[in-house]
Amino acid sequence: MEEFEPTIVAFVCNWCTYTAADLAGTARMTQFPNVRLIRMMCTGMVDPKYVIKALLAGADAVLISGCHPGDCHYINGNYKARRRVKLLQEILTGFGIDTRRVKLTWVGASEGNEFAETVNHLVNEIRELGPIETRELMVV
């Protein structure tokens, strides 16, 4: 049987994680191709409905990643993201979606290696977790 390859959408902030992803690229840090990035200006911009939409439209997991606490380019957008994601995870559990499918991390602009590791780690984790539950649970 062919191994399950998850599809993962990542909402990353322009100032930190997107820059880190660029750095990881410049340093040729190999990553699994499963994660596809959406550039946001700040994690505070990530409306929970974007995450839900991604999960319903075929993503097996969503990564939200921005600047470290205190480093947000817009003062505190990442704190807002943290609260929203926490709430979102609680709601998703109610729908039978494993909370590990929505991951929030902080990857600073200089942390190219951290970014590559986050990506590879997440892909492995979701590979083990298998396809998203919505495919069986819900008719979308």
């Binding site: 946001m40 200006m41 700040c42 505070g44 911009m45 990530v46 409306d47 817009y74 505190n76 929203r84």
Partner: peptide
Amino acid sequence: KGCGSCAGHCPSGAAQIKHFTE
């Protein structure tokens, strides 16, 4: 500054960041 803190939360979807709309 266009950070989107408002747009990410607005319960009615009235707040939108130009170039990063829903």
